[in-house]
């Protein structure tokens, strides 16, 4: 009987969330009367409901796309195949190294903390619109000669010269992919937490981006860490600088802090609900990690 009760409760729950029955969401009963006669004289005679003048009255509507002799819109422009799928392509709004340096110098960004999209958006000077196909920031090489900061940064796209500029100063750079839903959470975390929804799990990159993010040359977040440390040396030789040892750095912990491939926020895991009002972290016992913990205890 348990399953019956369960389904009854489910049905009740569904009923509660459904809207009331009202004029806007009901339709005529099946087989209800439909008037097939066209009225005469005062009984809906006159125009018979077809309106006055024009296509409506004469019931001779133009074919779709016809513009009464104008050059129709769908024929007006020549074929432009190079724009095919442009509305689906991922965009990466640029930030230059100069901009980043200014943000650091003016204390908009703390260089003692790892920098990611949330940090950049929280500076209040940079915006990201995931709904307009913006998939994160690309770091450009403008102001490369004046860049002097030692940072741990995560962007979505970076050129080789930019990677060299950051590593030369003893910093660390990673390129990482975030799906639009995760980006939405990152751009404005407090707004996301106010929704009372668990932190989403970061999805894998799409097929055409997988190659980029698994490559150690691009410092991709899915690349092998050993490969990356090798590529760091290679790049140092190519650009002719001595690679600072980050192992001896006082900020070593900060520099090597990396997110998991499924993680969105530093220190927070997917599946947690954050209560900002009461400063709570709420976890579900059904999360695999929590289950493992309980098994250990018992």
């Amino acid at each position: 009987m348990a399953h019956l009760r369960e389904s009854a409760e489910k049905a009740l729950k569904m009923l509660r969330t459904l809207p009331r029955v009202q004029l806007s969401n009901i339709r005529p009963n099946p087989n209800s009367k439909k008037n097939t006669k066209r009225g005469r004289a005062q009984h809906s005679g006159d125009k018979h409901g077809a309106g006055n003048k024009g296509s409506g009255q004469r019931q001779n509507y133009m074919r779709l796309g016809y513009e009464t002799g104008n050059n129709p819109f769908y024929l007006r422009f020549p074929y432009e195949p190079y724009y095919k799928g442009h509305h689906l392509r991922r965009q990466y709004p640029p930030i230059s190294l100069l901009q980043l340096q200014v943000l650091l110098d003016t204390n908009r960004i703390d260089s003692k903390q790892p920098i990611d999209i949330t940090t950049l958006c929280n500076s209040g000077l940079l915006r990201l619109q995931p709904a307009s196909m913006e998939y994160g920031f690309q770091l450009t090489d403008e102001g490369i000669d004046r860049f002097k900061a030692k940072i741990c940064i995560e962007v979505q796209h970076a050129k080789e010269s930019v990677i060299a500029a950051i590593e030369r100063n003893g910093g660390v750079i990673r390129t990482a992919y975030y799906d639009p839903r995760s980006l939405q959470a990152m751009v404005n975390p407090s707004k996301w937490f106010e929704k009372g929804v668990p932190i989403p799990k970061r999805l894998l990159p799409p097929q055409d981006a997988v190659e980029y993010y698994t490559s150690a040359k691009n410092r991709g977040y899915l690349a092998d860490p050993e490969e990356i440390s090798k590529e760091r040396l290679v790049l140092a030789q190519k650009y002719g600088y001595e690679l600072p040892r980050i192992e001896d750095d006082p900020d070593y912990e900060m520099l090597i802090s990396q997110k998991d491939a499924r993680q969105i926020f530093y220190g927070l895991e997917p599946g947690w609900v954050i209560g900002l009002k009461d400063k709570l972290i709420i976890k579900s016992k059904s999360l695999p990690e929590e289950q493992a913990n309980r098994e250990e205890k018992s």
Binding site: G267, I274, K279, I281, I282, K283
Partner: peptide
């Protein structure tokens, strides 16, 4: 972040009411 941690479990049975 959190001063303390609540742990709840959600079951389908108790969602109804």
């Amino acid at each position: 972040m959190g001063s303390f941690v609540f742990i709840y479990q959600r079951k389908v049975l108790c969602t109804g009411l």
